[in-house]
Computed example of a mutant assay.
Amino acid sequence: MGILKQFASYLYIKKDKKEPGEKKDIYLKLMHGMNRISILVFLIAMLIVLVRWLIKAI
């Protein structure tokens, strides 16, 4: 269950608490945005592969 909570907080589904003194700069925000996009594209691709596999099995 811990992995799902990490994904949810990373994708902004569940807000994670900020640590005191944490500093975010523009490059860190851009990096997190790119990682978020790559995770979503990967999940969409896995869904497409699963659907194609299910269609072939029928």
Rank of each mutant, 00 (worst) to 15 (best):
S38C: 12
S38K: 14
F7M: 07
F7T: 07
Y10I: 03
S9V: 02
M46I: 02
K29T: 14
D16G: 11
Y10R: 04
A8K: 05
K17C: 05
A57M: 08
K5H: 12
G21R: 03
A8R: 02
I48G: 05
S38E: 15
L28E: 15
I55W: 08
K5S: 15
F7P: 01
L30W: 10
I13N: 09
L28D: 15
K17Y: 00
L50W: 09
I37V: 14
K56C: 07
E22R: 09
K29L: 14
P20G: 10
A8N: 08
H32M: 09
F7W: 04
V41K: 07
K18G: 12
I39Y: 06
H32T: 08
I3T: 04
V41C: 11
I55M: 10
R36Y: 07
H32F: 02
I44H: 01
V41M: 11
G2M: 10
I13L: 10
G2E: 10
F42S: 03
R52D: 15
L4Q: 11
A45R: 02
L50F: 08
P20W: 03
R52C: 13
M1Q: 10
L43Q: 01
R52M: 15
A57C: 07
I26Y: 08
M46G: 08
W53N: 13
Y12R: 02
W53F: 10
A8P: 01
K18W: 07
K56N: 09
M1A: 14
K29A: 15
E19R: 07
